[in-house]
Computed example of a mutant assay.
Amino acid sequence: MNRNILILGGTTEAYRLAEALALRAGLRVVTSLAGRTSQPRLPAGESRIGGFGGSAGLRAYLREQGIQGVVDATHPFAATMGWNAQRGCAAAGVPLLRLERPPWVAAPEDRWESVADWEQAVAALRCGGARRVFLAVGRQDLGPFAALDDTWFLVRAVTPPDPMPPLHACRLLLARGPFDLEGERALLRHHRIDALVCKNSGGDATQAKLVAARELGVRVIMRRRPERPVLPAASSVEAAVAWVEALL
């Protein structure tokens, strides 16, 4: 009889976990994707796209599909899904593991300022007199920065914002990581960036921008990760695989 595992995915770690588990005999692996991109890359094994309808919808899905274990490998900033996963799994009596990459940690040479939300980031940019800002926050989080009416922005996103917020002046750069250090250095220099705004996502794919900012003395406004439930956790795909294997 197959054992059924659900991965709440969308991250690099989720894709790697699905690939590691999909070929195991007696294991059915389903990855759930939020559906925020029009043509998402599909993981190994089965996949489903779209939300569950909150924690109650997730609980119903777990019971209908006979899921025996869930790995929450969503983005560190997908806090709502994290809480829904905790409540839905608890209600269904299904074990839940959080797979999350470690956060970035500032080096002594870094010029980081930690903020809790984008309103604090806007205030920090205004207070610091930033004029040419690299926004690496994702296409859905640009709106608050329209309040800065004397700032030029470089906006990097995977897909175009729809609609585009009324930023005072900006250039939109469509690109998908990973990004290398040489390219990030050139980007900051070419656009004369004096401040970088980003989330503390962690991982290697987009870390080069932080190294480039350190080397060039560029100020970084770093949004802290939101609060999530306290759960059994793994910081590597290998540890998550071992957790799943222990359920079999």
Rank of each mutant, 00 (worst) to 15 (best):
P232A: 06
D150K: 10
E46S: 12
R192Y: 06
L17A: 00
Q68W: 04
A78V: 05
E227A: 15
G54W: 06
G45P: 05
A212N: 13
R63S: 09
R111E: 11
L58Y: 06
I49R: 07
A91D: 15
G54H: 07
G57R: 11
L8K: 07
P144Q: 13
A136V: 05
L231R: 01
A20L: 00
L247Q: 12
L210G: 11
R139T: 09
A60P: 03
P144V: 13
G183A: 05
A20E: 00
A195H: 02
Q65N: 09
E113G: 04
D110L: 05
Q86I: 03
G50C: 12
R225V: 09
S32L: 11
S55Q: 10
W243D: 00
D180N: 12
L174T: 02
Q140N: 14
R219P: 09
E109N: 08
L187R: 13
G53I: 08
L6I: 02
R225H: 09
F52N: 06
E182F: 11
G202H: 03
A205F: 02
W83S: 08
D149Q: 15
H191R: 06
T37P: 07
L181N: 04
R111P: 04
A79N: 06
N200M: 12
P160A: 08
V133R: 13
D194F: 13
V122T: 07
A44T: 02
A157K: 05
P165R: 11
P232Y: 00
A106I: 10
V71C: 00
A20F: 00
I49T: 14
L154I: 03
V197N: 04
V122N: 05
P43L: 10
E182N: 10
V220F: 03
R214I: 02
I67G: 08
R224A: 14
V115Y: 03
W83Y: 15
E113M: 09
Q120S: 08
A60F: 07
A146R: 12
L17Y: 01
Y15D: 04
G35I: 04
D204V: 08
R3F: 12
A14T: 00
R126L: 08
P95C: 10
G202R: 05
M1C: 11
P178A: 10
A44G: 07
G45F: 02
L172Y: 14
P178S: 04
R24S: 02
R41C: 06
A169D: 15
L58I: 09
R111L: 15
A106W: 01
A205C: 04
R3A: 13
G50M: 07
E13N: 00
G203I: 02
A18K: 01
E238K: 00
A146W: 10
E100A: 09
V115E: 05
G183Y: 12
A124H: 05
Q39I: 06
V70Y: 03
V158R: 15
K209H: 08
A56P: 03
W112A: 06
L17W: 00
G203C: 01
P43A: 14
A123C: 03
K199N: 04
E245F: 03
P144K: 11
R224F: 04
A246D: 14
T80H: 10
E13W: 00
